[in-house]
C-alpha cells in the first residue's frame, strides 16, 4: 500500500471560534408554539439557554484537547483525507474494532469509551479483553470532510472503512460497530470481497 497515514492534531483557527461566537450573539429565535415545548422541535426556551451557554461558557479548546489526547491520523483514501483516532494495544494481541458515528454524531461520542476498550483493566475489567480501536470519521463526516469533495453512499463508506482497516492498517479480521443501519453488514461485505 503506497498511501501513508500522517499524524493529525485538530486546531480550529481562533477566527473561526470568534466568528461562531459573534453569530451566536446575534442569534434570533422563533416564538414558542403553544402546547408541549418539544412537540414541534427543540424547545425554544431550552435552545436560548443552550445558545447562551455555547456563546459564553462552552470551551471549544477543551473539547479539542480531549480529542487531541488520542493519537490521530489522516490518510488519503478514496479521494478524501480520512481522519481516524487509533489506539493500538500490542500485548496481549487484541482484536481490532472499528467504530463509527452516525448522522448528527461525531468522533466525540467515542472519547469516553475508547479507553474502556483499549485499557479495560484501568476500569476494573480484565486486561485480556483489551481491543485495538480505530474510530474513523466516516468519509463526508467531521474531520473526513473537505468542502467540494466527492459524496459517499453507505456502500462506499463501508468500502472506505474496509480499505482503511485492511489495506492501510493490515487487519484481515476486525469487528465493526456502526451506530446506524447497514454499515456494519456492508463493512463485512466489503471485507469479504477483499479476502475472498
Amino acid at each position: 500500500m503506497t498511501v501513508k497515514p500522517t499524524p493529525f492534531t485538530l486546531r480550529v483557527p481562533d477566527t473561526d471560534i470568534a466568528d461562531l461566537r459573534d453569530r451566536l450573539a446575534r442569534a434570533r429565535f422563533p416564538d414558542q408554539a403553544p402546547g408541549d415545548p418539544w412537540a414541534y422541535g427543540t424547545d425554544v426556551a431550552y435552545l436560548r439557554e443552550l445558545t447562551e451557554y455555547w456563546r459564553d461558557h462552552f470551551d471549544w479548546r477543551a473539547a479539542e484537547a480531549a480529542l487531541n489526547a488520542f493519537p490521530q491520523f489522516r490518510v488519503p483514501l478514496d479521494g478524501v483525507d480520512l481522519h481516524y483516532p487509533a489506539c493500538a494495544r500490542r500485548r496481549p494481541r487484541p482484536h481490532a474494532v472499528a467504530v463509527a458515528a452516525r448522522l448528527a454524531g461525531s468522533v466525540f461520542e467515542f472519547l469516553e469509551f475508547i479507553p474502556r476498550l483499549t485499557d479495560p483493566a484501568h476500569f476494573g475489567g480484565d486486561a485480556r479483553d483489551a481491543f485495538t480501536v480505530v474510530a474513523p470519521s466516516l468519509p463526508g463526516y467531521g474531520l473526513s470532510f473537505r468542502p467540494g469533495q466527492r459524496r459517499f453512499g453507505v456502500p462506499e463508506i463501508a468500502d472506505c472503512v474496509a480499505a482503511l482497516m485492511h489495506d492501510v492498517l493490515g487487519y484481515d479480521r476486525f469487528g465493526a460497530q456502526g451506530g446506524d443501519w447497514e454499515l456494519r453488514s456492508q463493512v463485512g461485505s466489503a471485507m469479504r470481497m477483499r479476502i475472498a
Partner: peptide, 30 residues
C-alpha cells in the same frame, strides 16, 4: 451539554453537515 456543543461545533467548523446527509439521501433515492 458540553458533549452536544462539541459535536455541533465540529459540524459548524468543518461544514460537513450537508455532506453527512448524503448517505441517507442516497439510500432513500436508490
Amino acid at each position: 451539554r458540553d458533549h452536544m456543543l462539541a459535536d455541533i461545533s465540529l459540524y459548524w467548523f468543518t461544514g460537513a453537515i450537508g455532506s453527512s446527509f448524503w448517505p441517507y439521501y442516497a439510500a432513500c433515492t436508490v
